[in-house]
Structures are given as C-alpha cells and as structure tokens.
C-alpha cells in the first residue's frame, strides 16, 4: 500500500469514528466494560493462585510425631516415610523434618502479635538467660525450653493433589508405619486421626472454586466479547449505511475490496485501541486504589494475616497486551463482518 493511500485510510477511519460519535461512544463503553470484567477476573484468579502458593501447605501431608518418641524412633519414622516418598509419583520434593521449636518460630512469623506464642517465646528467652548466667541449672529448669505444646513433624509435599487415589494410598501407607517398644512389641507409630494433618479436602474445594472462576471467566469473556462485537458491528454498519452510495461508487470506479474495507477496519481498530487504553487506565485505578484498599481493610483484622496482592506492574504487560488483543480482534472482526454484504463484486 502506498504511503499516501495508507494515510488517507487512517484519516477516513478517524472521520468515521467522529461521524458516528454516539455509536462509537457506545462501542467504546461496552468494550471497556467487557475488558475491565475480563481483567478483574484475571486479577482475582491470579490473586487466589498467589495466595495459595503463599499458604504453601494446602498440598502438604504433615505427620506429627508423638512427643514421647526419642531421636532414634523419629529417625525410624523418617526412614519409613522416605521409602513411601520414593514410591509415589506425586511426591517430588524431599521429605522435610520440622522440629517443635521450628514450628513455634513459623507461628511467630505468621502471627507476630499473638500473646500466647509470644508468652512461650519470652519464657523460653528468660529461662535461657537464667541458665546462661548460672542461676538455673539444667536439672532445675528440666530443659532450657519451657514446655512447647507443639509437636515435631515430617512434611510430604505433593505436586498434584487431584490424584486422590494416590493420596489415599500414601495416607494408608503412613498409617501402617510401625515402631517397636522396649519389649520388642510392634505398635502403630502414627495415629491416622490425630497425627496426620492434611488439607486435601480444603484443597479440593479451593481448586473447585478456582476452576469455577476460570470457567465463569471464560464464559464471561466470550459473552462480553460477543456483545462488544455486536455493538461495534452496529456502529460500523451505521457508517457503512451512511456511506453506501460512496461504497457503490468506489466499487464502480474500480476500487479493490481492500481499498473499500480499509477505512472501516481502521475505524474498528481506533475504537478497539482507544477502548483498550481506557480499560487499562481504569483497571489500574480500580486495582491500585480501590481493590487493594478494600481487600486490605477487609482482611486486616482476620487472624493477623492479610491477603497478598501484588503491585499492578505485575499485571500491566498481560493486561495491556490482552486488552489490546481483545480491542483489535473486536474492531477488525466487526468491521469485516459489517462490510461483507456491501463488498459483493
């Protein structure tokens, strides 16, 4: 295409947008609404994803160890779990041992203002200082630590919890681990009710919610895209109808289809790109100044931990390109379809 023709088409496209200003505005509004909904659904799904990853123990089976077990018995259970880990295709990570003290520290990090946790840690610190200054012997204190109610545990992390059969098999194997008492008699090392903690059920529910959101998001995307297509199509159709004599004349002069089509496609592209820019700006505002504030104020008081929401810059590229793609698709497709019947040779 010659540069002069290219610029002529661009000018004609802009003229078309302003000539049908009411319908152009309607198209932009519908497209913007559609894009913001799509963008918000994407952000919500991603936020759920990020937060699940942060919680990080939804896909973990934790085997809690009885406080009466000695180091040897703990190691024995570890060996048995290691054997189970090796046989399961859905456990890829190494078996992790978390001591009772480490559990306490983890809780402290998660709930820094919790009085009960802080009380235990403070007493512990006090005892340590007495022990170090010689005021409290090891025998007198019984231990450097005050009695920590938490138990040590082993953690098995699954890569895929949707394989429920395999998860059940692993759990039953854990349930069968035996230890021997002093008389050599075997007993169950793990009580399936009290010692095995997992979030399999919760994980399943969460996954269902997430999948529902995905499906709903895709449906909403499709529905709004169709609505947007119809509105833009009507805008372009009005333009085409108003210029039907021009189009007929162009055809009879020997204008090619692409020459006739181009100004209308440019018109659609302008509407699409402009809508994408507006939607991007609004999405930024909604996310950065509204959604984050609402979520922050709603979750601030809940157990000391809020929902993690990243900065908008993390979404900027995906949303920007996504909006642009939706805008261009809607613009080009709707103008092409609107013109079809006027372009018969």
């Amino acid at each position: 295409m010659k540069p002069s023709t290219f610029f002529y088409n661009i000018r004609q496209g802009f003229k078309g947008v302003f000539r049908n200003s009411v319908m152009s505005t309607a198209s932009v509004l519908v497209l913007v609404a559609c894009m913001i909904l799509i963008g918000t659904i994407y952000v919500v799904i991603d936020t759920i994803d990020v937060n699940f990853k942060a919680i990080n123990d939804l896909n973990v089976i934790e085997v809690r160890l009885d406080k009466s077990y000695n180091d040897e018995q703990i190691a024995e259970i570890g060996d048995a779990l290691e054997q189970i880990r090796k046989t399961s295709p859905i456990i890829e990570k190494e078996l992790v041992f978390v001591s009772a003290d480490e559990h306490l520290q983890i809780l402290k990090e998660r709930f820094p203002d919790n009085d009960w946790i802080n009380g235990i840690l403070d007493s512990n610190e006090y005892n340590r200082s007495l022990y170090e200054s010689g005021e409290l012997s090891e025998e007198e204190g019984g231990s450097v630590l005050v009695d920590n109610p938490l138990r040590a545990s082993y953690r098995l992390e699954f890569v895929n919890l949707s394989d429920f059969d395999e998860v059940t098999r692993v759990k039953s194997l854990i349930d069968e681990i035996k230890l021997k008492d002093e008389s050599g008699k075997e007993f169950d090392a793990v009580d399936s009710t009290n010692d095995i903690r997992d979030n399999i059920e919760l994980y399943g529910k969460v996954m269902n919610v997430k999948n529902t959101l995905y499906v709903a998001g895709i449906w909403l995307l499709a529905i709004f895209l169709i609505i947007a297509l119809f509105v833009i199509m009507n805008t372009i159709k009005l333009g085409v109808f108003a210029r039907r004599n021009e189009i007929t004349f162009m055809r009879l002069c020997g204008a090619t289809k692409s020459m006739i089509r181009m100004p209308f496609i440019v018109e659609g592209v302008i509407i699409g790109v402009f809508s994408a820019a507006v939607a991007f700006g609004l999405e930024f505002y909604l996310y950065q100044y509204l959604l984050r504030d609402i979520v922050a104020s709603a979750t601030n008081s809940a157990a000391g931990g809020g929902i993690i929401m990243g900065d908008f810059s993390g979404y900027a590229l995906v949303l920007g390109l996504g909006f642009l793609a939706v805008g261009l698709f809607a613009g080009v497709i709707s103008s092409s379809v609107s013109l079809k019947k006027y372009l018969k040779a």
Partner: peptide
C-alpha cells in the same frame, strides 16, 4: 478527486 483517490492515485 475521490474517483482517483479510491483507485490509489498519487496526490
């Protein structure tokens, strides 16, 4: 001019 423009004539 329009008749020329639509067949891609140079300005």
């Amino acid at each position: 001019a329009f008749a020329m423009r639509v067949v891609g004539a140079k300005p």
